[in-house]
Design a protein around this nucleic acid. Structure first.
Length: 572
RNA sequence: GGUUCCGUAGCUCAACUGGAUAGAGCAACUGACUUCUAAUCAGUAGGUUGAGGGUUCGAGUCCUUCCGGAAUCGCCA
């Protein structure tokens, strides 16, 4: 149930009648017609911009359209009053019984707020995709939470979602991992080792060294790299992926597919993807212009194999081969996305770190070219997380191997707090994460504020249960504060739809904060006005009164569910 | 220099993707605990939306020129 969608449907029906009666010309598009809560509650319950949006294409004036439309809307039983305001807004006041209907819907139907917006379309959400060379750190953590919540949001909205991790196990960085692991292996045999520039000194590889010793004994000692590199590479990446999966799991993230970059090499996959582009005339040998302005010192013109990404919206064409003939990183990525298209996904979402911003256009261009524009590809960039402790910035140094890992964060803040906090900012805005603040139990901390609202309701329900109150789905309320809360509940399906369309799960977090605020406000009003308390002397009255907070708990719980956060039953 | 993102109250951020008088929290000030947990609530105050120009019924949002910040820019992934 989505009250806003229902009323919008009513508006469109009325408009179609007007077309039939020649009050509006035929062939108008109603796609811009919106039904929204007005910014100022005194204007009514809902407002539509229909008259203003249609005035121009209909070659009419907004007031005239509004007057006719208002008359038609008035005839519907759900509408109590219609006003035309300002330049042509139509403000609607809805029959009060509708708000009770919202509460009932939330209590009765499984999954209030769910929709079939996605219509079962297959959508691939690729996220995290951290190099398998070490533990994942805070930056990836934000990407992980964002991608997982976005996936849940899309599932909730009727998409068939695949969560996917692209393992970068094909490049030079896994050779570095193998060499670093070999050093730890020697160390496990009691050798003194040093970690030269260009190796990973982090102690997370100590255990890998031990495990290598257990598996290979001393058989690899003093052997040339050619004899052990490939084997250790596999051994070490497997170990890293195992660790990464475990970390992700502690955050509540589970992937459906782990896709290996390595599996694209030597299997003809890259070649066939590029062949596909070549057949479309998008691959050529050429020389790139140097970057405008600041020219690199060692720039010299070079002929390379290029992808004509400019045909699909990129600024310059992109090389797919290095000068030594090997593939650039872009080539397997093209093949990977070609594979996604071939697996039949209707939509693709990539979630990258902000440092990959320059990569967005070429990736979209590749997908556009490979699918002939049939598969939309949205790339979401996740900005940095700035860590603080009591307002003091945290120092991170990757070179010294002392970066803050997902593990550190989850250990200190917990899964639920971490997830919620990571979603309290738009994905493309930097996020401040203060270890002290996120655990604070105050209104300043949105996680707590929302959880507290849920816990308060649970407390009421426990008391009601002790008193043997029967749970019924028909609410009873008439006060402004109660109606205001019910209206907020009615907005949930709409907010979910907006968030799903925009690929912005953080909207759910904001919504929950506002909903919690409504609940706390109503709660406090019960102090002065006993009629607003949920627990009444009369048991039947209590039954009817607690329907509203119960519905609120259902919605908070559903919203938190999308974010992957457990609702709190009580605060301690 | 090119590209992308960002700039909104003292601070941290919203603003339903072009809608009505730009909203919350923190900090400041005032008030409310014999209660369904005051871990909360109600109120006061705080603004030339970085600057200028343009598009139209209407701009924080779109186009443009500046200013300031971040990321990135052919053989790193």
């Amino acid at each position: 149930m989505n009250l806003f969608a229902d009323i919008r449907a009513l508006v469109v029906t009325c408009l179609e009648q007007m077309v039939a009666e020649n009050a509006l010309p035929e062939g108008l598009s109603f796609s811009n017609v919106a039904v929204e809560p007005p910014r100022d509650a005194s204007h009514g319950d809902m407002a539509t911009n229909a008259a203003m949006v249609l005035a121009k294409p209909a070659k009419s004036n907004p007031r005239a359209i509004a007057t006719l439309l208002a008359q038609k809307l008035k005839e519907d039983a759900r509408i109590d009053a219609v006003e035309i305001a300002g330049p042509g807004f139509i403000n609607l006041r809805l029959n009060a019984s509708l708000w009770a209907g919202v509460v009932e819907a939330a209590l009765r139907s499984e999954g209030f707020g769910r929709s079939s917006l996605g219509a079962g379309r297959k959508i691939n959400v690729e996220f995290v995709s951290a190099n398998p060379t070490g533990p994942i750190h805070v930056g990836h953590t934000r990407g992980a939470v964002f991608g997982d919540a976005l996936s849940s949001l899309l599932e909730f909205s009727g998409y068939d979602v695949t969560r996917e991790y692209y393992i970068n196990d094909g490049g030079a960085q896994v050779d570095v991992l193998a060499r670093s692991s070999y050093l730890r292996y020697l160390e496990a045999h009691g050798r003194q080792v040093e970690f030269p520039e260009g190796t990973y000194p982090g102690d997370y590889l100590v255990q890998v060294g031990e495990n290598l010793k257990a598996k290979y004994g001393d058989s690899l000692i003093d052997k040339p790299e050619s004899e052990w590199l490939a084997e250790i590479r596999v051994f070490a990446t497997d170990a890293m992926m195992e660790m990464i999966c475990k970390d992700l799991k502690s955050l509540g993230v589970e992937m459906d597919v782990y896709y290996s970059e390595k599996s694209l090499y030597g299997t003809g996959k890259i070649e066939s993807a590029l062949k596909e582009l070549e057949d479309k005339g998008l691959i050529y040998e050429g020389v790139l212009e140097p970057p405008k302005g600041k020219k690199p010192e060692d720039w010299e013109p070079r002929e390379q194999t290029l992808f004509k990404s400019t045909d699909h919206g990129d600024d310059v064409d992109r090389p797919v081969k290095k000068s030594d003939g090997s593939w650039t990183y872009f080539a397997p990525d093209i093949a990977y996305h070609y594979d996604k298209v071939q697996r039949g996904f209707d939509e693709i979402i990539d979630i990258f770190g902000a440092d990959h911003g320059g990569y967005v256009k070429r990736m979209k261009a590749a997908v556009s070219a490979l699918s002939d524009g049939a598969v939309p590809c949205d790339v979401k960039l996740v900005q940095l997380v700035r860590l603080f402790k009591n307002g003091e910035p945290f120092k991170m140094s990757k070179r010294a191997g002392t970066f803050v890992t997902l593990n550190d964060v989850v250990d200190q803040a917990g899964k639920d707090v971490t997830r919620f906090m990571m979603l309290t900012r738009k994905n493309d805005a930097p996020l401040d994460f203060d270890f002290a603040k996120v655990l604070e139990q105050s209104k300043d901390n949105p996680v707590f504020y929302v959880q507290y609202a849920h816990a308060r309701i649970c407390s009421v329900l426990r008391k009601a249960s002790e008193q043997g109150v029967e749970l019924i789905d028909t609410p009873q309320f008439d006060d402004e504060a109660e109606i205001s809360l019910a209206k907020k509940l009615a907005d949930f399906p709409r907010q979910v739809a907006i968030a799903a369309k925009a690929h912005e799960p953080h909207r759910i977090a904001f919504y929950l904060y506002e909903l919690a605020s409504e609940l706390h406000s109503l709660w406090s009003k019960g102090k002065d006005n006993e009629a607003l308390r949920f627990l009444q002397d009369d048991k039947d009255l209590t039954s009817a009164k607690i329907a509203l907070p119960r519905a609120t708990a259902v919605v908070i719980s559903a919203g938190l569910g999308i974010l992957g956060v457990e609702p709190a039953q009580e605060m301690r």
